[in-house]
């Protein structure tokens, strides 16, 4: 088990890699990347996801579906640090002729389970993966990360309804709840609250956590006791309160960093804060 100090350093390393990718590629969504780095760190480095970087298509593995596809840099950087491929490959991010675009692309790198880019696609695919695991009697757990703005898509609610009805207890949904969509607050565009109550009414076991507290994330993600002891099995959702742009002072909670790339001065300042 990696201790919390090392995990914080690892999260900083991932943020620095994202900064490099976005700065060099002149493209990306650094604010959304930083919002979910701590969640990805917990998933990949706290013995939550059972994956093997040396055997990325291992049939028994757990699956992580990155539904907020504009967070591609955060996923790619995390996979590199995990050892799925050399960090040097990240240099191709958004470069001329590269297959590493600003949105998650299936098959472009080992460890990427599915494509994303348009909101609301990841959860239904994760539901399909959860059904397949149950059909095959595999112990694979399926984790899917969605943005909160993405929860305005109807397909999310179709999948929530279906997974609750079918009691897919091998499925964990994490909502990156930073309350900022492209340019405005989610709560001011089309609000989601009471989000936890909505989820529970759809048949999901829900909890709220601080999405930047590694201990809270890890504890929430750890498989709990078999739910059958306490009643019917259900899928579970973790509503992670996060801050868009987390880790760099001038990016935090500032909507302009949804799709902006740092200039040289901003790059240097961000680098100093992350060093």
């Amino acid at each position: 088990m990696v201790d919390n100090g090392d995990l914080r350093l690892m999260a900083k390393l991932i943020r620095r890699l994202i900064l490099e990718m976005t700065y060099r590629g002149k493209e990306g969504h650094i604010g959304t990347d930083y919002s979910c780095v701590d969640i990805l760190t917990a998933l990949y480095f706290c013995d939550i996801l059972r994956v093997d970087p040396q055997n990325p298509t291992w049939q028994e593995r757990d699956r992580f579906v990155m539904s907020k596809g504009h967070g591609a840099a955060s996923l790619y950087a995390t996979l590199a640090v995990k050892g799925f491929f050399p960090e040097e490959l990240l240099n191709a991010f958004c470069q001329e002729g590269s297959s590493l675009s600003a949105h998650v692309t299936f098959d472009c790198l080992p460890g990427v389970e599915s494509s994303a880019g348009s909101g609301g696609h990841g959860l239904p695919m994760a539901v399909g993966m959860a059904l397949a695991a149950k059909h095959d009697n595999r112990n694979s757990k399926i984790y899917v990360l969605v943005g909160d703005g993405e929860c305005q898509e109807g397909s999310i609610w179709e999948a929530l309804l279906f997974a609750g009805h079918h009691q897919l207890d091998n499925l964990t949904l994490i909502i990156d709840h930073n309350n900022l969509q492209t340019a405005e607050k989610v709560s001011e565009v089309v609000g989601l609250e009471p989000l936890r109550g909505k989820m529970e009414s759809f048949g999901w076991q829900a909890q709220n956590i601080n999405g930047h507290d590694i201990d809270q994330i890890r504890n929430a993600l750890l498989p709990g006791e078999p739910q059958s002891k306490h009643g019917p099995s259900t899928p579970r959702v973790i509503i992670a309160k996060t801050i868009k742009g987390r880790g760099v002072s001038f990016m935090e909670n500032n909507p302009i960093w949804h799709g902006r790339c740092p200039n040289e001065e901003e790059y240097r300042q961000a680098w100093e804060e992350l060093s």
Binding site: S114, G120, H121, P124, A126, V127, M129, L131, H135, F162
Partner: peptide, 26 residues
């Protein structure tokens, strides 16, 4: 019954679930 799903009136979910199953080798 394990190979048949009536997804209901939810075509977006139908295709997404189909993709997830296919990504798992189905």
């Amino acid at each position: 019954p394990d190979q048949h799903i009536n997804i209901g009136m939810a075509e977006q979910n139908m295709i997404g679930v189909a993709a997830g199953l296919a990504l798992s080798g189905k």
